[in-house]
């Protein structure tokens, strides 16, 4: 199975999405990410019971913060899929990449670029 997904997606592996804190998500944006998605196990299948459910709540809060700070709530998302769903993974990557491309570069990255120039 040779599935194609956009090469500019940077993957950060964590043992469980429950490990992803709110400030991790925000820091990614501070460092210039245009979008961030959290890919957790299917709901009900968390090895640590509720990790992916906590992650979803943090993503929801991140959306509110990104909205309030003018970054935009659609730049962060939560997805759930199992390790066996390679096709779905590729699909999510393409789908999210498409969404972010439509939104354009993050205002944070633009501001950084402007400063650097």
């Amino acid at each position: 199975m040779r599935l194609q997904y956009p090469t500019h997606i940077h993957i950060i592996k964590v043992p469980c999405t429950g490990r992803v804190d709110l400030f991790h998500l925000l820091q990614a944006f501070e460092q210039g990410a245009d979008g961030v998605f959290v890919a957790g196990c299917l709901e009900g299948d968390c090895h640590y019971m509720h990790g992916n459910l906590f992650a979803r709540k943090r993503v929801e809060r991140a959306k509110d913060i990104l909205a309030a700070t003018g970054v935009g709530r659609d730049r962060v998302e939560m997805y759930n899929l199992s390790a066996g769903q390679g096709t779905r993974w590729a699909e999510i990557c393409r789908e999210f990449d498409e969404r972010i491309k439509n939104l354009g570069p993050s205002p944070i990255r633009l501001a950084h670029d402007k400063k650097a120039a």
Binding site: L26, E30, I65, A68, T69, I108
Partner: peptide, 16 residues
């Protein structure tokens, strides 16, 4: 934790 979140959010706000 909350300080870090607020700090980060403020940096995002000022930057944009």
């Amino acid at each position: 934790k909350e300080a870090k979140v607020l700090g980060s959010a403020l940096r995002l706000y000022y930057t944009q």
